[in-house]
Amino acid sequence: MPSFFAVRLQDGRLYGSLIDILHNGAPLALAALGMTLVIATRGIDLSVGTVVAISGAVACTWIASSPDPASPGTALTGIGLALALAAALGAWNGFLVARLGIQPIIATLVLMTAGRGLAQLVTDGQIITVNNGFFAGISGSALLAVPLTVVVAAAVYALVALVTRRTALGTLVEAVGINPEASRLAGVRSQSIVWTVYVFAALCAAVAGLMISSNVNAADANNAGLWLELDAILAVVIGGTSLAGGRYSIAGTLLGALTIQTLTTTIYSVGIPPEVSLVFKALVVILVFLAQAPKVRALMRRRRRRRDDAPPPAATAVPAETAGSGR
Rank of each mutant, 00 (worst) to 15 (best):
M1A: 06
V7K: 10
G12H: 00
R13M: 12
L14Q: 00
L14G: 01
S17D: 11
I21T: 12
L22A: 14
G25V: 12
L28V: 06
A31Q: 01
V52S: 01
I54C: 01
A57V: 15
T61H: 08
A70P: 01
A75C: 02
A75G: 02
L76N: 05
G78H: 04
L83Y: 02
G90A: 07
A91N: 08
L96I: 14
A98P: 05
L100S: 05
L100E: 05
P104L: 13
I105G: 03
T108N: 10
L109Q: 09
L109W: 11
G117A: 14
I127S: 01
T129R: 15
T129N: 11
F134A: 14
A136C: 02
I138H: 07
L144Q: 10
A153Q: 04
Y157H: 09
V160F: 12
A161R: 06
T164L: 15
R166Y: 08
A168Y: 13
E174I: 07
V176K: 07
E181I: 15
S190H: 06
I193W: 03
Y198W: 07
A202N: 06
A205M: 06
V207R: 00
S214L: 12
A219H: 06
A219R: 07
A224W: 04
G225N: 11
W227M: 15
V236T: 05
G240N: 05
S242E: 10
L255H: 09
G256K: 12
T259E: 02
I260G: 00
T266K: 10
I267S: 07
S277L: 11
S277I: 12
L278I: 15
V279N: 10
F280G: 03
L287Y: 13
P294E: 11
R301N: 12
R303N: 05
R303W: 14
R304N: 05
D308A: 15
P312W: 07
A320E: 09
E321T: 14
